[in-house]
Design a protein around this nucleic acid. Sequence first.
RNA 1: GGCCCGUUGGUCAAGCGGCUAAGACGGCGCCCUCUCACGGCGCAAACAUGGGUUCGAUUCCCGUACGGGUCACCA
Length: 555
Amino acid sequence: MDYKYLSELLFPDVTLTEEELEAKYPPRQLPEGAKVTRFAPSPTGFVHFGGLFPTLVGERLAHQSGGVFYLRIEDTDARREVEGAAGALVKTLSHYGINFDEGATADGERGDYGPYKQSKRADIYHVYAKRLVAEGRAYPVFSTDEELSELLTADKKAELKSVNWEEDGQARREAMLARRNFTIEDVERELSAGHKFALFAIAEGDGTRKRRVNDLVRGDLELPENDEDVVLLKSDGIPTYHFAHVVDDHLMRTTHVVRGEEWLPSLPKHLQLFSYMGWKAPKYIHISQIMRQDADGSKKKLSKRDMGANLDDYSRLGYCPRAVIEYVMTLLNSNYEEWRAQNPDRDYTEFPFNVKKMSSSGCLFDMKKLDDVAKNVVSRMTADEVYAQFKAWAESYAPEFAPLLGNADYARAIISIGRGGKKPRKDYGTWVEIYNYMKPFYDGTFAVEDEYPDTVDRSDIKKALSMFLETYDKNDDAGTWFEKIKAICAPLGYCADMKEYRTAPHAYRGSVADVSMMIRVAVTGRLNSPDLYTVMQILGAERSTARVRDMINRL
RNA sequence: GGCCCGUUGGUCAAGCGGCUAAGACGGCGCCCUCUCACGGCGCAAACAUGGGUUCGAUUCCCGUACGGGUCACCA
């Protein structure tokens, strides 16, 4: 068959040449060892938590080495595209401090290796598609519009639960061989009938033979050679992921492809295409999926509906971006926590990220661990930082509370409790938690949420609160303030000394802890609170005593 | 079902032929203590399994089991 003629028949409009493209997208001038990586999402929705892994790896690899991190939008499937998803993606990632050097950014394209949207690169793909046809390595498959729409709607074969794999495989092999069988006349006839064609690459591999391929995290792998014809171009002329990946990552001079492990099975296809093209394949890093624990205890891929799957969930729940990043870093590099312990105040970008320290087994998403990481992150922040971020959060998620934060000094005083020093307190890790923490400090949100335990005598409470009011002096320091509380104990038959009380609890009606509790509930409305003295200092004498008086009247 | 990847405490994980098998989260206990925390100290808790190789296997090889992925004109 005259493949050259066939290629002209199929791609009469190709005017670009490979030489021109190579000249337009020359090898990048970068320092030795600089890595070029990309985030290449399909704009089908929100940014998935699982997607943050490869993204962060790519970003670190590039920026740590003085390389380039770019964004390429893989919008080759128009049916699944979600309007505005690409923009939202960039925005969310930027919120997490992940920024692109080039690509389809929010304000248009940036960089010399574009276009960065695959839908705008059709003419580029066609240059190479044409060449493969001319070399006898790719062939067209025609289908009528009816057949096509049938294909497009019969989307998921997986829905056919009981697929007979053996028959299916046999049928596909036969279909494949049948498709390769055609004449030039067939093509001319189909073309003149106005039928569209998909372009397939001929698989020259032997599926029974293994080939050693390398993955930077997994090491050497034994993968079978590809023996399945791959779709290069769909009937609409747009490439599939496989072809686009090969062409784009070559032309954009990607050095390292970081992607989910679900791509591992199709790696032989990609390697084969690189070899057909005569290009050097990039290095690959396949990342394991993030799993979640199912109700029955089994592991499941973190899916879209799961809590915590959508990155924007974390904003709503009040996790600051740095906490989420920090958590991801601990999952990505096993020695990260150790490094963090030694460098509590360094930015995570200073951590020497190492591909070799990455785990190759999938991990379970652990909310508890995230919470702990978040507490650590927030505890190391300055009061100003916490104030600014919390306020921003409140404006979107707690609008009724946000105005109360107008008094910055007051809010900062609350936030400053236990902050600073070598071992800052870890009272809250999310803005939701700090919101709850702060409520008692504002009359607008103060409420008696906890009742006194039934075991406590009401008249004792009344007496204690009255005595407290009589002796309270706002000018007392913490020591004398507490001495006065102790002084209340004896007349009521409570023990002022905890040690002593523990030795003989039945000798007393209660202890100074109980008396403190009575005051605590009156002042904060809760059984638990930060240090009571400090709370009252922040609230001010007037408000504190007023709340105590209210409580006395309530009882 | 074929192919591929994986398997150290409940979770994340160190380990890379010889260790009482780290550490972190969580759990539990004790201490500190005006509460809750924070902090300190401690406890329980693991090499999936069967064969090899070896003087010696968590570590190397093979099988089995289990988990995951994948088999689209989706990515």
